[in-house]
């Protein structure tokens, strides 16, 4: 993909063109335990799509927090450049992104906005089932917003702290 992700900042809106790989919980475990050179230097999408007749019908993001524990190791092992998901990831991931990668937010539930410009290139680990398989997808004009950048900034942390202040005032 023709983007220097390390130049992006929190709040930047980006349109992606190129290849991405879906990976959820089970795929993350597989990728850490096995060698899978196809995803070297690539982009990971936290997503379990609906696929019919080799076409992507719907493909919104899943909650990224479930992948918190595996992501730092995955970034190290495969030099992942960007992760697309929803809901943000924890501080360990934010630290690991420093100087090398970004987290991009897609809108949870907006599955058809994303699937309309997707083509399947390949599928791996099909035995994991439709949701957990690794789908290699060619995307066109995939709109995302940078919510964790490679300088240690996170929009999710900002929102969390702001909401914490209000929460603590309400609860006391």
């Amino acid at each position: 993909m023709d983007i220097d992700f390390t130049k992006l900042k929190v709040g930047d809106k980006v349109v992606l063109n190129g290849t991405i790989f879906t990976a959820r919980d089970r795929a993350h475990l597989f990728l850490l335990k096995n060698e899978f050179p196809q995803i070297q230097n690539s982009i990971i999408y936290h997503c379990g799509p609906i696929v019919k007749d080799d076409k992507i019908i719907a493909a919104g993001p899943t909650s990224s927090a479930r992948m918190d524990a595996y992501t730092p190791k995955l970034i190290d092992k495969y030099n992942i450049k960007a992760i697309i998901g929803k809901g943000g990831m924890d501080d360990n991931v934010l630290k690991k992104l420093k100087g090398r990668a970004v987290y991009l937010s897609a809108i949870g539930g907006a599955a058809l906005i994303y699937s309309k410009n997707m083509k399947i290139k390949n599928v791996y680990c099909k035995e994991f089932g439709m949701t957990e398989a690794i789908w290699e997808i060619e995307v066109e004009n995939f709109p995302v917003i940078v919510t964790m950048d490679s300088n240690g900034n996170s929009l999710h942390s900002e929102v969390l702290e702001k909401s914490r202040n209000v929460f603590q005032k309400i609860v006391k």
Partner: peptide, 27 residues
């Protein structure tokens, strides 16, 4: 502005689902 963008995309998604008779969400 971010919130408005998100909501507008969600509304567009709802319209596509109805017009094309596709699931609103993959889940």
């Amino acid at each position: 502005e971010n919130a408005r963008d998100v909501l507008e995309s969600i509304i567009e998604n709802i319209e596509i689902a109805k017009t094309e008779s596709k699931p609103i969400c993959q889940d």
